[in-house]
Structures are given as structure tokens and as C-alpha cells.
């Protein structure tokens, strides 16, 4: 079942504060609202707290105060296990680099979220895990690599496997933390286009983080983290 949000808001932060260590506040964000289906670009210099923000949105980190509302549910009010399950079901995540579990092959890496989350599996609408994985993989141009050892892939191929993994089971939200910074310019644009078209097809909200501002024109909306972060 898809979580419906009548408001059209996918995510919302309200007076959120976060610190890794007491007294060293990294984030203080009065408000950030992300609409459903939006393609949002967040940028900021290294160390400005981009990854930290994504951790809050994904429910890996817990805000010290304030409300983090995702798909209509307040993550700060959930139990840790609930947050993990929620993330597994509704959010796809791509890291900057080394996204893959080294001891699993391409196919097993892609289907991992569906095996971990029953709800994510249900969203395949009856398609087998493998068929679903193949479908996304074909779209991303890695259909021929399904049984490949992930250590033997090029960086660009690895990132596409990571994208396939974040997209399988059509999660409402896809979060990408600098997924293109290790790719050259041509591959970067190609990768982003593929990501866009997949997100469009699935109706997913895309939150894309980078310090590379040349990518800005491709997105619906751009936010500078230092601008919205009062702790900066």
C-alpha cells in the first residue's frame, strides 16, 4: 500500500535541531518542505551537514528536537525499529561511492531492499524479485551484468546498480548523496537523466545532494543548506 499524502507534501522539517555531540550543533533548520514528486537539489560545502540532513530525513539519525514528517508520519515519534522498517519500505538511498555489498552479486544487491522489507516486496505487484530487478536494470543499462561480481564493475556501473537498488519496489522517496561525484561529466548527466526518468515513471520524490552546482539547472528546485541551516 502506498502511503497517500493528501497535502502533496513528501517531507517536512519543523524547527529541527541535531548534534552528534552535546553543544556542537550541526543542524538547526526552522523549516524545509519537500513536495511529492519534486526533484530537489541540495547543495553546500563539504562538512556543511548535507549527509547529516539526509540521515535525519531517512530516519537513520534522530532529531534532538523538532518534527521530521515523512509521508505524513513523524519520524521522531517512531520507535527505532519502526523507523528502520519505514525507511526500508518507503525510501531508496544512494551513496556517493561504494554502494554495494561486496559479497553479493549485482542481482542480489539490487533485490536486497525487497528481501529486507516485506512491504517493499509487496509493491512489486506480484512480479518476481528477479523480474523486477531485471526491469529496472534494463532501464539503467546494466541488464547484462546481473550475475556479475560487483567488485568487477566500473564505478559508473556500480552507481547504476545502486540506483537500481534504490528504485526497485518504487519507493515514494529516493535520496541520493552525491552519487555522481566520482563520475566524469558525460556519465554524470547520463546517470542523472536515467535517475530522473525512473523517478518520474515511479512517481518518486527525488532528493539529490551535491556540492557540484553545475547540476543545478537540471532540477525543479535548489536549496543551499547553509542558507536554511541556522547552525551554520
Amino acid at each position: 500500500m502506498r502511503v497517500t499524502n493528501t497535502t502533496g507534501t513528501a517531507m517536512q522539517l519543523d524547527v529541527v535541531r541535531f548534534a552528534y555531540r552535546k553543544g556542537r550543533e550541526v543542524l538547526r533548520i526552522p523549516n524545509l518542505t519537500i513536495s511529492a514528486g519534486e526533484r530537489l537539489f541540495i547543495f553546500g560545502p563539504s562538512g556543511s551537514g548535507k549527509t547529516t540532513l539526509l540521515g535525519l530525513l531517512a530516519g537513520v539519525l534522530r532529531a534532538g528536537s523538532g518534527a521530521v514528517t515523512v509521508l505524513g508520519r513523524d519520524l521522531t515519534a517512531m520507535k527505532p525499529a519502526e523507523r528502520d522498517a519505514f525507511r526500508g519500505a518507503h525510501i531508496g538511498y544512494i551513496f556517493q561511492l561504494f554502494n554495494l555489498i561486496p559479497y553479493l552479486d549485482v542481482l542480489d544487491n539490487i533485490v536486497l531492499p525487497c528481501r529486507l522489507s516485506a512491504e517493499r516486496r509487496r509493491r512489486l505487484n506480484g512480479a518476481s524479485l528477479e523480474a523486477a530487478a531485471r526491469r529496472v536494470a534494463e532501464h539503467l543499462g546494466i541488464g547484462a551484468l546481473m550475475r556479475e561480481n560487483v567488485a568487477r564493475l566500473s564505478v559508473g556501473q556500480q552507481q547504476r546498480v545502486a540506483a537500481a537498488r534504490s528504485l526497485i519496489g518504487t519507493p515514494e522517496i529516493v535520496i541520493a548523496d552525491e552519487p555522481t561525484s566520482s563520475l566524469d561529466h558525460d556519465h554524470r548527466e547520463k546517470f542523472i537523466e536515467l535517475l530522473f526518468s525512473e523517478c518520474r515513471e515511479a512517481g518518486s520524490t527525488l532528493i539529490f545532494v551535491s556540492h557540484d552546482r553545475t547540476l543545478m539547472p537540471l532540477f525543479d528546485r535548489c536549496v543551499s543548506l547553509p542558507d536554511i541551516n541556522e547552525a551554520a
Binding site: P80, A85, R87, Y93, F95, N99, I101, P102, L112, L116
Partner: peptide, 16 residues
Amino acid sequence: RREMAILRAIGAGPRN
């Protein structure tokens, strides 16, 4: 550690 972070991002909890 990276492997653990990946698993967490996918929805595995610390208990897992």
C-alpha cells in the same frame, strides 16, 4: 563499517 551503513540505509536496524 561501510557494509553496515549500506545495510542501514536499506532498512536494516542496529539490531539486525
